[in-house]
């Protein structure tokens, strides 16, 4: 399918209780479009991890999702503090989250490694003090 459905969302950074609403909407859309449950699950988990990161580390941002029958491309962009050491951030268990975030059940240092696990392509473009752009691709074909 050459046709691409383009979705754009703004994620608010000031309300943790709303984190995940965008991932929920995209999950619903993919289900309605008839994507395989495994594909929908991969997108939902990778995107939710990214959305949580955006809210807890970067005061929100934007999410663009391009959906075609071949692949789902998710671009998450924020104007947060950036990631000083990406290699370290990719290690399971490494986290810079505050105690406040941990009390909410997150910040265990599993986010980025988990996004990598559930995506077929993951690219991080980050600049300290300027922000982070995370591009995730999940293939939809078997």
């Amino acid at each position: 399918m050459a046709e691409v459905m383009k979705l754009h969302y703004v994620v608010s950074g000031d309300d943790f209780t709303r984190a995940g609403e965008t991932s929920s909407k995209v999950k619903k859309t993919l289900n309605q479009l008839g994507f395989r449950p495994e594909v929908v699950r991969k997108v939902a988990i990778a995107m939710y991890e990214g959305e949580i990161n955006m809210v807890i580390h970067a005061d929100g941002g934007t999410i663009d999702v391009d959906i075609s029958s071949d692949e789902i491309v998710i671009v998450m962009q924020d104007k947060g503090p950036g990631i000083p050491d990406v290699e370290k951030a990719m290690q399971e268990g490494f986290s810079t989250a505050s105690n406040n975030v941990r009390e909410l059940g997150f910040g265990a240092g599993m986010g980025l490694p988990n996004i990598k696990k559930y995506s077929d392509v993951m690219e991080i473009d980050t600049q300290v003090g300027k922000g982070t752009k995370l591009r995730i691709v999940i293939y939809a074909k078997e």
């Binding site: 939710y48 949580i52 399971e92 059940g105 997150f106 986010g111 696990k117």
Partner: peptide, 23 residues
């Protein structure tokens, strides 16, 4: 820890938790 639920669960399980929030 919901972080660990997201990272470790690989099936449609019953979830037991002492954390109570919307997330």
């Amino acid at each position: 820890l919901m972080s660990d639920v997201l990272a470790f669960v690989n099936d449609r399980v019953l979830l037991l938790t002492g954390l109570v929030n919307l997330q």
